Simulated scan of single mutants.
Amino acid sequence: MFLKSAENVLDILFLWEKEKAEELGLNEISQLTGINKSTVYKILQSLKNRNVIEQNESTKKYKLGVGLIQLSSHVLKNLDLREIAHPLLKQLAYMCENTVTLGIKSGKNLIFIDRIDGRDNVRFFCDIGKVTPFNGGAAAKALLAHLKEDEIKEIIDDMEHQKFTHKTKDRDEIIKEIEIIRRDGYSISDEEVDIGVLAIGAPIFDYTGAAIGGVAIAGIKQTFTQESFRINKKLLLEYSSMISKRMGYFENK
């Protein structure tokens, strides 16, 4: 039933493109899709409430709305980030010999959109497509710390504490850590998501100066000597800065 309902919504949304029409009436949509008029009406009202569909008050016909533009611009922005960052992430993974991940904000969580495995090819939590709360690792914390204050407050207020290990930070600890991350320019996740794994994270900014992503280097904790940590941190900050610059960010802007 759920799958059929989803197919009905998609059939309706793609109808304007299929028919090359600017506006379509309720009866037209029902006839062209084969979906009964009552169901079409309910779907249109739901889409209209989300600005995905608009209704012409004069003709009472429907057309695609600005909500689709908002969705598409969000997708395009994130795809551009991954496309621009990927070659640099590959270089970074090669140079640091550890796994490198890239995540973006998805609602009140972080979702990983890219991952380059390191020398040891160790399987961590952060696979592509994985969603994690903002207390879930270095990339998430680096991004969280550099979001706008109202965004941070909203995320923190609604944060459901997911404890990955006994070292996972709770809400109060995350709040305290935000200022440290801002001061240092990077975050650390010390076995907070996977036991035996250490990660360093840094934010990525766009042309407006807004934080749009978090990149992290993760590896087996035992391999992170004081010197290797220093080198990895230096590489991470250099490459996250390069990605930000390619996204149009200038620090003195």
Score class of each variant (00 low, 15 high):
residue 126 C to S: 14
residue 122 V to G: 06
residue 101 T to F: 03
residue 135 N to G: 10
residue 103 G to C: 09
residue 105 K to P: 10
residue 136 G to R: 04
residue 113 I to E: 05
residue 109 N to D: 12
residue 100 V to E: 00
residue 131 V to S: 11
residue 107 G to M: 04
residue 109 N to E: 12
residue 116 I to S: 06
residue 125 F to V: 09
residue 120 D to A: 14
residue 119 R to P: 00
residue 136 G to S: 09
residue 113 I to K: 06
residue 103 G to H: 05
residue 120 D to V: 10
residue 111 I to W: 07
residue 101 T to E: 01
residue 112 F to D: 02
residue 118 G to M: 01
residue 106 S to F: 14
residue 133 P to M: 05
residue 103 G to S: 12
residue 131 V to F: 09
residue 99 T to P: 04
residue 121 N to Y: 06
residue 110 L to N: 09
residue 102 L to K: 04
residue 126 C to D: 09
residue 124 F to V: 13
residue 112 F to K: 08
residue 103 G to D: 02
residue 124 F to W: 12
residue 104 I to H: 04
residue 124 F to R: 09
residue 136 G to I: 06
residue 132 T to R: 07
residue 123 R to Q: 12
residue 98 N to E: 15
residue 134 F to R: 01
residue 103 G to A: 13
residue 124 F to M: 13
residue 101 T to C: 12
residue 102 L to D: 02
residue 116 I to E: 15
residue 101 T to L: 04
residue 119 R to F: 14
residue 132 T to V: 15
residue 136 G to W: 08
residue 109 N to H: 11
residue 104 I to G: 02
residue 124 F to A: 08
residue 125 F to E: 11
residue 114 D to R: 03
residue 98 N to C: 08
residue 131 V to A: 09
residue 118 G to H: 03
residue 112 F to V: 14
residue 102 L to N: 01
residue 112 F to P: 05
residue 117 D to P: 01
residue 124 F to I: 15
residue 106 S to Q: 12
residue 134 F to S: 03
residue 131 V to W: 04
residue 110 L to K: 05
residue 131 V to N: 09
residue 109 N to Q: 11
residue 99 T to R: 05
residue 108 K to R: 10
residue 105 K to T: 06
residue 110 L to D: 00
residue 117 D to N: 14
residue 106 S to C: 10
residue 112 F to N: 11
residue 122 V to W: 10
residue 125 F to Q: 10
residue 113 I to H: 07
residue 125 F to D: 00
residue 103 G to R: 03
residue 98 N to S: 09
residue 111 I to Y: 07
residue 123 R to F: 06
residue 108 K to P: 00
residue 129 G to H: 06
residue 116 I to Y: 01
residue 100 V to T: 01
residue 114 D to H: 04
residue 115 R to L: 11
residue 131 V to M: 11
residue 134 F to K: 02
residue 113 I to Y: 07
residue 128 I to Y: 00
residue 112 F to Y: 15
residue 100 V to H: 00
residue 115 R to N: 08
residue 116 I to K: 09
residue 107 G to C: 01
residue 121 N to T: 07
residue 129 G to C: 08
residue 99 T to E: 05
residue 113 I to D: 05
residue 107 G to L: 02
residue 105 K to M: 11
residue 129 G to T: 08
residue 114 D to C: 02
residue 114 D to G: 03
residue 114 D to V: 04
residue 119 R to Y: 15
residue 106 S to Y: 13
residue 128 I to E: 06
residue 108 K to Q: 09
residue 107 G to W: 04
residue 102 L to Y: 04
residue 125 F to I: 10
residue 132 T to K: 07
residue 119 R to H: 12
residue 104 I to A: 03
residue 98 N to Q: 14
residue 108 K to C: 01
residue 107 G to E: 05
residue 128 I to W: 00
residue 109 N to P: 00
residue 123 R to V: 12
residue 114 D to P: 04
residue 116 I to C: 10
residue 109 N to K: 11
residue 106 S to M: 12
residue 122 V to E: 13
residue 108 K to I: 07
residue 112 F to W: 07
residue 111 I to F: 07
residue 117 D to I: 01
residue 111 I to L: 06
residue 99 T to D: 05
residue 98 N to D: 14
residue 127 D to F: 12
residue 123 R to M: 10
residue 100 V to W: 00
residue 125 F to H: 12
residue 110 L to Q: 10
residue 115 R to M: 10
residue 129 G to V: 08
residue 129 G to M: 05
residue 126 C to L: 13
residue 121 N to W: 00
